[in-house]
Simulated scan of single mutants.
Amino acid sequence: MLIGIPMRLYICLVCLLFSFSKNASAAVILQYHHVSETTPSSTSISPTLFEQHLDYLVQNKFEVVSLNKIIQTIKKGLPVSDNWVAITFDDGYKNVLTNAHEKLVARGFAYTIFVNPGLIDIRASGHLSWEQLNSMAKDNVEISNHSWDHLHMVRQLENESPTQWKERLKQNILMAEARIKEMTGQNNQVLVYPYGEFNSEIQKLLTELDFIGVGQHSGAVDEFTNLTRIPRFPANGIYAKLETLKTKLKTKAFEIVNYPDQPMITMDSNPEIIIGLNVKDFNLNQLVCYCGGEVMTPKWLSENKFKIKATQKLKPGRNKYICTARSIKQPEFYYWFSQPWMILNPDGSWYEEG
Rank of each mutant, 00 (worst) to 15 (best):
N99V: 03
S129Y: 04
H146W: 07
A124H: 13
R123Y: 13
H101V: 09
A110Y: 14
N116W: 00
L119V: 08
A106Q: 12
A124Y: 14
H101G: 04
R155Y: 03
L133G: 04
S125C: 04
D149Y: 10
L97C: 03
H150C: 08
V115M: 15
V141D: 00
A137I: 10
F114M: 15
V115R: 15
L97D: 06
I113Y: 09
T112G: 05
H101Q: 09
S147G: 12
A110V: 06
T112L: 13
G126P: 01
L133E: 09
Q132K: 04
G108D: 08
M153H: 01
L151D: 08
D139R: 02
I120F: 11
S129W: 07
H101D: 03
L104T: 02
N134M: 06
E102N: 09
R123T: 13
A110I: 03
S144N: 10
Y111M: 06
A100W: 10
A124K: 14
A110C: 12
H152Q: 05
H101K: 08
T98L: 12
V115W: 15
L119K: 11
E102Y: 05
N116Q: 14
T112V: 14
E142L: 15
E131N: 05
D121A: 12
T112E: 09
W148L: 12
S135F: 10
F114C: 09
G108E: 07
N99H: 13
K138L: 14
N140R: 09
H127S: 03
T98M: 06
T112R: 02
K138D: 11
E131P: 00
S135P: 01
N134W: 05
I120Q: 13
S135Q: 13
W148M: 13
